[in-house]
Design a protein around this nucleic acid. Structure first.
Lengths: 209, 209
DNA sequence: ATTTGGTTTAACCATTTGGTCAAATTTAAA
DNA sequence: TTTAAATTTGACCAAATGGTTAAACCAAAT
């Protein structure tokens, strides 16, 4: 049965290849990854990889898609839910974001990869295609500013700050580890701590007292 | 005259190659970059690149070195200067960091590159070799906490937050641009704004009121 | 049992690419 | 002016790599 167009619900070898590709691409990037390496990681013949995904680029694109599609919708649906208060939203955002990346460690690598390459447009399109509008979050901020709950802040800077502080620690993981050794804290511990500290840090900064 | 060991003060073709390599490596990464491409960018014969730098890896390493050496010393000497107050230090840190990256746009790419690869140890070594100790900054924070000027914060999280918010916007530049279009703000404007907003954001969060 | 269609593999191919080398050219010392 | 050393180049090479293909394999239908 032909099922090349079948997305989302992969199985068997196709699934194996995707998982292997996530791992290898995430580690070495599009150029650094070898088709043979991916095949080995999946435990199958190299030609099979081509059989299922045609080319390296197509495979990469496929991984990009499932990666971002498993990510943005969850985060963005949270952010554009108008019935969650701003502070709650910040708390949940940090937790969700960090947890999602913990569960899919290949994501930051791809993020950097795809962005340093010219792939921002594609990501931007995904935003729009998902039918989700960040405006809700922005308006919510402006609302709270008017109400006087928070101090005036540029919403764009705020959201950039939040994303930065969630993602970057994963990119800089080996570096940060170097610092942490001093305190004999391991990285997962650091991340769990971060899930609690970060919302406090953010809210503390914008909350009017 | 043999001058392969001559560092820091390059000239002529050697300089041209380094600049070209910064640009190409920063854009495409170690694997994505082509020696031919670098030679073309420098406007010289490919064999010359090998003549001066032996191999692609050696060239990459050379660029890594000058990149990080042009960066860490300045930042770290600021951070470990005990005669600058904490708040001033934060303000200067943000400004210096962002300005430095603005002037060397290839740095974030390299940062991500080198970290996603296993190069953290090398970077960590540079810290130590530079004879600069981040402990000064950490102690300063703990001091201010005792004094009661700032609320209790984990110094590691704080410094990670600061670095994250400075670097990540450059990595995510194309994405952020997408958001900014809405407000018809161009990126440099955004960065200048950021130099002012970020210190406020950070200090606001830790300052006891 | 045979056929049929998807699946899997080993062998193979064309191209790209990092790197080399001998010859040519420039520079500077003698 | 010679001469020696450093620099620059085009041509070339071996290895690596993405991709192809024809044959083998296998499960289900007839």
């Amino acid at each position: 049965m032909e099922n090349h167009k079948n997305n989302t619900q992969l199985q068997g070898n196709e699934k194996l290849i995707m998982e292997a590709a996530k791992k290898i691409f995430g580690r070495k990037g599009l150029d650094g990854a070898r088709m043979q390496e991916i095949a080995d990681e999946a435990g199958i013949n190299k030609a099979l990889v081509h059989y299922y995904f045609r080319s390296k680029d197509k495979l990469f694109e496929a991984v990009i898609n499932v990666t971002f599609l498993s990510f943005f919708p969850k985060v963005m649906s949270l952010m554009s839910n108008p019935s969650i208060s701003l502070f709650q939203k910040i708390e949940r955002f940090v937790d969700l974001y960090i947890t999602l990346i913990q569960e899919n460690p290949h994501i930051p690598g791809f993020m950097a990869q795809e962005l340093s390459r010219g792939g921002a447009d594609r990501v931007l399109d995904m935003f729009k295609d998902s039918g989700i509008k960040p405006e809700v979050f922005f308006q919510q901020i402006e609302q709270e500013i008017k109400t006087g709950t928070i101090v005036p802040v540029n919403p764009v800077h705020l959201i950039v700050n939040m994303i930065s502080m969630c993602i970057f620690p994963f990119l800089a993981r080996p570096l940060i580890s170097g610092f942490l050794i001093r305190d004999r804290i391991d990285y997962d511990e650091f991340l769990e701590e971060r899930k609690k500290e970060l919302p406090k840090f953010i809210i503390n900064s914008i909350k009017k007292k």
